[in-house]
Simulated assay, not measured.
Amino acid sequence: MSVKRSYSSARRDAQARETRRSILDAAGLLFIAHGYAATTLQAIADQAGVAVQTVYAAFGSKRELMRQLIEATIAGDDNPGPVTEQAEAKGVAAEPDVRRRAELDAALARAIVQRVGPIVRVAEEAAASDPELATMMEKIKAARRDEMLVSARQLAGPEGLRLDPDEAAATLYVLYSPHVADMLMRDHGWSPQRYQAWLARMLLETVLGTAPHDRA
């Protein structure tokens, strides 16, 4: 009986994760297509193929759904945790070659900003007229700033940082920003590959203090 209960529980958990993922996917699609204010929880439920009560039970409110959507999109996972705890970030930290470490970190950052950029634009536009959503976005930004200290330590490697940790974290906060990516890829028309190469170079020159053609 204990084996059957364990199997049933695991199956329910998997179904709950699948439902949550469907709701997040539906919300992302509709928020980007129609905006935050114009998208109702009923529309999200219809898109996801679930009852609106299921959306309320899983997220509680549209604002909380947006928060979890941003976090899940940053992480690229439906059970998000800090990016610095994921395998890709740990792979960056483990890379012994400084140039390769910057390249890996730039590739990871590019993947994140390309995923989350459209959602962040929607959320920030809506936050301009929604004080509670604006407060939520400030909390997300504060958590991101805190995570930059961990990112700086992971990026440092055996060579260390050119800047003190706080300044390195602030620099990464700017370099990793979706707004910077937008200015280069949307406004200037850079390809994602060019943006990634630029970011790796900036990491080497400003945070790690290593010229692009130096060897570790």
Rank of each mutant, 00 (worst) to 15 (best):
G28R: 00
P212C: 05
R63H: 14
E147P: 05
Y7G: 05
E138L: 08
S61A: 07
A143V: 03
D25V: 13
E71P: 10
W198Y: 08
E125K: 12
D46Q: 15
R144S: 09
G60S: 05
E18A: 15
L161T: 09
I119S: 01
Y195I: 02
I119A: 11
P82C: 06
D13Y: 11
R121H: 06
V50W: 00
A127K: 05
A156N: 04
A37N: 13
D78R: 12
A111D: 11
P192S: 03
A102C: 08
G189I: 05
I70E: 06
I44V: 15
A156V: 02
E71W: 12
M136T: 13
V50M: 05
L41V: 11
D164K: 07
A102T: 08
A102F: 01
E167W: 06
I74E: 03
P158C: 11
I70Q: 05
L163Q: 00
S22H: 12
K62R: 10
D130K: 03
A216Y: 11
D214T: 11
A75Q: 06
G35Q: 00
V50K: 04
M66P: 08
P192D: 09
E125G: 14
A37Y: 14
R145K: 07
A87S: 14
A127S: 12
T210K: 15
A106E: 03
T210M: 15
A45D: 02
Q193C: 10
A33H: 10
L149R: 15
R162F: 02
I32C: 03
A45T: 08
T54D: 13
S191M: 04
A127R: 09
R162A: 07
T206S: 02
P80A: 04
S177Q: 04
A123I: 10
G35A: 10
V174W: 00
A123V: 09
E88Y: 08
V180F: 02
T54K: 09
W198K: 05
Y56G: 10
A181I: 02
A123L: 12
G117V: 00
I32R: 01
A51V: 12
A142P: 03
S2N: 14
L30E: 08
A37T: 15
Q86K: 01
A45E: 01
L24T: 08
V180S: 04
A38T: 09
L30H: 03
M137C: 14
E159Y: 00
R99N: 14
E88G: 11
A169N: 05
G81P: 02
M183T: 05
